[in-house]
Design a protein around this nucleic acid. Sequence first.
DNA 1: TTGACAAGTGACCTTTCGTTCACTATAATA
DNA 2: TATTATAGTGAACGAAAGGTCACTTGTCAA
Lengths: 197, 197
Amino acid sequence: MANDTKERILAAALEMFSQNGYAGTNIRELSASLGLVKSGIYKHYESKEAIWNALLDEMIAYYADHFGSADHLPPVPDSLEALTRLTMQMVNITVHDEKIIMTRKLLTLEQFRDNRARELATKHFLTGLTEIFTHIFAGMMEKGLIRRDDPAMLAFSYTTPISALIHLCDREPEKTEGATRQIEAFSRHFIATYGVK
Amino acid sequence: MANDTKERILAAALEMFSQNGYAGTNIRELSASLGLVKSGIYKHYESKEAIWNALLDEMIAYYADHFGSADHLPPVPDSLEALTRLTMQMVNITVHDEKIIMTRKLLTLEQFRDNRARELATKHFLTGLTEIFTHIFAGMMEKGLIRRDDPAMLAFSYTTPISALIHLCDREPEKTEGATRQIEAFSRHFIATYGVK
DNA sequence: TTGACAAGTGACCTTTCGTTCACTATAATA
DNA sequence: TATTATAGTGAACGAAAGGTCACTTGTCAA
């Protein structure tokens, strides 16, 4: 029996949980947004908490698939300009893709309540990006594009300001364009500081 | 009639709202934590939302009082080492003071729901610190302690990584000590980059 | 064609929520 | 001392929450 309701429920749950939080979301509205009555939900998930857990399972699996292994590391840029290009490409995806935005918001809202959300939040907001750019900066140092320094420290110094502006976009979406420009300016300033001329 | 119940309610509300969010907090528990029965609350505030608004009023006023004007800017450090000292002093307060921690958590949880929380979150997490350190770096450039550069950009580059680690402390308090050390290491690395030897 | 089953409905249940209200105890005021 | 306002109690209320269940419908396999 061809049916995608189970996944549509998760999509709707992501939307509502990321907007109103877990406690602020009720099953009636969630069902209604899918065009069904609330008891219908329980044919697919046994409880509100089960929906939450399934959603987190999916998010954790997605993260592991896309950022979890060294296979998915982006290629090391071969010029300073290419570093900014790569950065802006990643940033533009992350601040405009609705699903990614909702994922961040959800992790923001539930990080203090749920341990798995807490862990994933730290990866999403801090360690994940830092690891990727540690690899990138190490590679660029090898190539002589960036001054020899601690690549992890540079990655941390590079990604956390960008992360701060991404959070600003989540909070005040009307500032997205300005924040994006500021990220680019920051990237160029960073390169001016650490890049080898 | 000497009574501080009204303020004790706000203190308890800060505690519960910052832990469970507005929607996840109920008046029964809130009252119980103060040793009174839930109807007693309504002698002091007319509704749950009124408590929320009063709490936000207080937070906004507190912020304006303590960080709102140029009067409260810290003195410009007169050595590179003093910059790290000042930084660590500010950080140690902010990651150990329970009330400040709860304020950040509350803003984190309610930034998408309430417009005033949204604005205050941006100040707390981004623009506030950046402004303070723009002033500091401008002053240190004047004194020849830091290489001439855009002070606002340096302030942004300096404060947002620190902010990211403060958020980590809020999320995973057991990492507070490690994060503090990392902030100090970052501060010294920053100085090694931008400081004038 | 029929039987089985998955998907969806609508009425209903229990619990919990925020809120109200009549009442009591207390302590300052006239 | 009598009065009055304040702080707090406990029972009750309606609304909304999460969840159950008997039932209908539509689809596929035998």
